[in-house]
Amino acid sequence: MEFIQIVFWLLAAGAILTSLMVVLPRGRNPLYGALALILSFFFVAGIYVLLVAHTMAILQILVYAGAIMVLFTFVIMLLNLSKRELGEESKNLAQALGVGAVAFIIIKSIIIVDASADSVGGDNLALPKGFGTIESIADQMFHRHLLSFELIAILLLVAVIGAVVLAKRTL
């Protein structure tokens, strides 16, 4: 077992455990889930670093853990939910069937991926110079994907206006 593999398994186990802590505990204040989710984003950012995507790892921490999760914790604390307002979470057969179907599909796909994915990219795994740097990402983004970039800007503007309108006290 190489050192880098141990690092990978630690990061993967941390990401999976903290994600489970978001989803599994029923009827608990979602604030605990939000804090676990912040940890999960940090673990996944560590896996990004192993994939030579260090710019994306920084962006993940800045945008996900820094901006989105601050918004989540802010809203959760603003709502200040009581036990009664959290409500009883229903359990029925449809949910159990859905969970079973998801588990079956994912186990099946892990078996398929394990058998076939490692031939992707062939034997030559050499990376071009500057792979994963801000410079090469910007080069791609402002040449090949310029239209998508502008559309994302418009989408964010629409989201900001939509959020303000939706959250206003009187519509």
Binding site: A53, Q60, I137, I152, L155, A163
Partner: peptide, 30 residues
Amino acid sequence: FARFQADMTGHVITFFVIAVAAAEAAVGLA
């Protein structure tokens, strides 16, 4: 896949997904 195919397009798409997730979180929480 970006790392194993040595193709930067995956990074750009990841950037866009993060931006869309931010928009989705803002509207969803509102």
